[in-house]
Design a protein around this nucleic acid. Sequence first.
DNA 1: AATGAATGAGATTTCATTCAT
DNA 2: AATGAATGAAATCTCATTCAT
Lengths: 194, 194, 194, 194
Amino acid sequence: MKRNKPKYHQIIDAAVVAIAENGYHQAQVAKIAKQAGVADGTIYLYFKNKEDILISLFQEKMGSFVEKIQQVLAGKTTAAEKLLLLVENHFAMLSEDRHLAVVTQLELRQSNKELRLKINEVLKGYLQLIDDVLKEGVEKGEFKASLNLLLARQMIFGTIDETVTTWVMNEQKYDLTALAPEVGDMLLNGFSIR
Amino acid sequence: MKRNKPKYHQIIDAAVVAIAENGYHQAQVAKIAKQAGVADGTIYLYFKNKEDILISLFQEKMGSFVEKIQQVLAGKTTAAEKLLLLVENHFAMLSEDRHLAVVTQLELRQSNKELRLKINEVLKGYLQLIDDVLKEGVEKGEFKASLNLLLARQMIFGTIDETVTTWVMNEQKYDLTALAPEVGDMLLNGFSIR
Amino acid sequence: MKRNKPKYHQIIDAAVVAIAENGYHQAQVAKIAKQAGVADGTIYLYFKNKEDILISLFQEKMGSFVEKIQQVLAGKTTAAEKLLLLVENHFAMLSEDRHLAVVTQLELRQSNKELRLKINEVLKGYLQLIDDVLKEGVEKGEFKASLNLLLARQMIFGTIDETVTTWVMNEQKYDLTALAPEVGDMLLNGFSIR
Amino acid sequence: MKRNKPKYHQIIDAAVVAIAENGYHQAQVAKIAKQAGVADGTIYLYFKNKEDILISLFQEKMGSFVEKIQQVLAGKTTAAEKLLLLVENHFAMLSEDRHLAVVTQLELRQSNKELRLKINEVLKGYLQLIDDVLKEGVEKGEFKASLNLLLARQMIFGTIDETVTTWVMNEQKYDLTALAPEVGDMLLNGFSIR
DNA sequence: AATGAATGAGATTTCATTCAT
DNA sequence: AATGAATGAAATCTCATTCAT
């Protein structure tokens, strides 16, 4: 299993740095190899092709994130609390690795449609997690019974994503994590006064 | 003024079709020219370079959209109504031109950072419009006084954008415009029961 | 006869200016037309193609130069005097029209081999004139009977040409005409002390 | 160091042949690569761009020529002898490589001004060598004390260059090297009888 | 005679991937 | 397992020339 060898992760981390520092289109395989301290050809002992590096990158980072979130949400009782924690942890994860934030929010979006479809495939685990929280909220009577779950999930993900992207485009100048409560409140209660 | 000559728009429309059908990276200038029914060189009588076609495309389409929205919102009295109309019209615009929807939601995002920065410049007019609706809602007492306007705007735009993108990725199989009321309601009132 | 219409010369003079100011490869037909104050297409009513402009340019300028030199040399009695006058007038002609100097010494040399062969054709009248002076010098006993006329002509032309080119490359900073006597003396007597 | 790898010289020699046989503008990188027996891309492992091939070509050929001449002149005692050897070796070098003669005398002159400025930079070493011979001649009393060194150098270089160019344009039909003594004599003693 | 919009051929360079060592 | 030199396909843009008006 390539996944367990040190160079596998070495190359993925090098890709994150190379892409964050040079931009998607300027992060040639040669640059990633140099950053990883291996020869160009070595890359191909661990990855099928360049696209495979990027998908693996996303899988590794997002996969461990989904696992972490699941643990965090495990003991919590209300859907509202879970939603807030989800937003908070999403923001925290990207705040902690600023290179990764640039890569996922800006650079990887420049990849072609095909790659983005595969990335969406990876995202499904995360979206499922959101779906579960929403379903639980409806079942427990916390959320409106009439809630369109698919739309609600798109609202959650769209809001989180746009918030993070804006933060990255503003060069990560402010504290992203501090925004989580406000975002959570808006998702739960909307803009209107009651 | 190039902008008033018929070939200018002819080429922009050809670009939308060529990009939607072939994908961003496979929409070579030669293909756009062929689709427009002009010679390759003719493109360069109307546009500085390929990037200029794409920026102009975005400006023309988004520019006229912002104008149209402004007219639609003009006579309306409540911020809530304006917000709903905004979502509705955004969905309607892209429902009406499915090629354009593919181009803006999927293909144009593959452009390099520089082009995307210029596109963001164009978007500012639209974001300003959203800001105005939000400000009005707060001033009139419709929306919470504590509302973080920047975050609220990101929530609106992020939700709309994610909803449209999901619809496009699902090959536009359902009626996007029909979703507007539900989206509007979620933005105004959130998920929680009252 | 095109040659007698005003636009013919207007275009040639525009070509000299356009080439001197923009360089050979940046002097597009469109620029020459603009400089001449005519439409691009008009050029082709007076010249077969772009090359034809350049050959005509050379013919007009060099043709009138050969005529002028012939008049100047007409009354003179010694070959030595004629040689000096030839150098002097060559230097003077290019000193008087600095645009023309740049064009003939630097820019026109970038033309392709074919054009340069045609330019050499035009030069033949001038080279013949040099040959005549040399022949006269030998016949009259002024110059060595053993003189290789062809080589001597190459020495004269090569020396003049290199001297002018160096002057142009030094941005015409010094008085070229003033160098004529020294050049004449070196051609007649060489470097060696007697 | 690229300069020491065999492919570096292989490509330069291929460029000489390709340019001599096809002409400057028809010697595309693809043709040079084919002539060198390498892939197009390989060229760019050894040269920054096409211009870099041409500059390097000139540097290699002229550089080794200057070195060779310096060795040849080393033991000689009179400036006159040195001058003759210089002409002789210059003629010999180009006689020995007829492709190179075509390239330096005809084809490379079509390059743009920028490239020619760089070529002139390379030429400076050679011109310096001529200057040294002239200075020595004056100091030793062989040459006139009144000699304008700059002009004399232009006469030497101009004469050699014009002689070689004429020979190349005449398709190298006669023995160029045989002309060296006559050229040397004309430079030293001029045309006039004594 | 004059215009100028339209044409379309053609070449440099990059970079993911391979494979002999 | 690791290397890195070599490969070669592919696309933007320029500009001399034409021709309908």
